[in-house]
Amino acid sequence: MELWTARFCCALLGLVAGLAAGLEITSTGPTSIEKASGQSVKLDCQFSLAPEDSGPLDIEWSLLSSDNQNEDKVVILYSGDRAYEDYYAPMKGRVHFNSADPKNGDASINLTGLKSSDSGTYQCKVKKAPGIRSRKMLLIVMVRPSKPRCYTEGPAQEGKDIVLRCMSSEGTNPLQYSWEKTSDSKLLPASAVLDPVGGTINVRNASASASGTYRCVASNRVGAEECVLYLNVTPPPNTAGIIAGAIIAVLLILIIIAIILFCCWRARHRKKYEKEICNEIREDVPPPKSRVSTARSFTVGSQRSSLGSMSPSNLHEYSLKNQYDKIPSSEEYERPPSHAPLPPPSTARMAGPNLSRMGAIPVMIPAQNRDGSIV
């Protein structure tokens, strides 16, 4: 009984040893790789087969999820003697098998045009029944620093604090900044305080000796970029001169405003004077004709009343004295006195008592002034 037990144990150990001597991953390279964006990388996965591995060969590369609740993403696949290299859309056209025939024991892949999103843990899994083996590799895609921008903060004057700043907009941390002076003594000012992480130099109580050319280098583990800055420390400005110039400028502005206001006032006064002169000329215009018509209507009405009081017997006598009762026309009223027509000559001037004896009726004629108005 013990003999049979020993034989069974030996057979079992041989079987386990046979399985262990089957499919194996033979790659021994580093399991962590750092690369810069835009570069290419080879993820090594070499394997060996044994005669016992008689099943179909399957090779699967996957990007493991950092969250256990999410599924792993298959990047490239080999199955049924066929490679599926466009299996993962974000890496389409950028991932390929290193060997044209992975069955020869080379399951390595090449990634080109690396991006920061390609960073992660990759797993190479080789299956050939009854053996299954896998290998994990960490890929870190780092972005090299972009060209930094150098500039100063604060007035570059003597006695002032000046800050020299260097900043890269892109780059994988940790970024390091270093400053150096490339002109004169090539030594940073004694009062300068350097911050390699923030990329600044604080020059306190700057002097003229701080002037010169400075260079800043931004770097990380995959690359470096630099920029150049020229610093010119100037003497403080003449404050008294600036104040005097400002006062003179203000006075000139006030004088110009006063001249403009004076010109406007003078133009307005002249316009008002011309308007008053026009009004004085209009006062000499002759009176309207409505007054003449009123006087005429009054005289004509009086004449009609006189005619109404006459009898047919004295109409003949009235015709003799119409020349005395004739009312001048409007043209005669408007005509200057120097051009007034002379009365027609009378052959005989008759006195008032004679007219009364002849039966004439006296008529009162309203008095008139020179412009034709009734008094």
Rank of each mutant, 00 (worst) to 15 (best):
M1C: 07
R7G: 08
G14E: 01
G14L: 13
A17H: 01
A21H: 11
I25T: 04
T28L: 08
T28A: 06
A36P: 06
G38M: 06
S40K: 12
L43C: 01
S48C: 04
W61A: 03
S66C: 04
D67L: 12
D67F: 11
N68M: 07
Q69P: 03
L77T: 04
D81C: 05
A83S: 14
Y84P: 00
Y87V: 08
A89M: 07
K92S: 06
N104G: 14
D106C: 09
N110W: 08
Q123L: 10
L139D: 02
D161K: 08
R165T: 11
S168N: 02
P174A: 07
Y177S: 00
S185C: 07
A190Y: 00
D195P: 06
R215P: 03
S219I: 02
V228Y: 00
Y230S: 13
V233F: 01
V233S: 05
G241D: 09
I243M: 07
G245Q: 13
A258I: 15
L261F: 11
C263E: 04
C263G: 10
E280T: 15
E283T: 15
S297R: 10
S302I: 06
S305T: 10
G308I: 12
G308D: 09
E332F: 04
P336T: 12
M350S: 09
R357A: 08
M358G: 07
N369W: 08
D371H: 11
G372D: 00
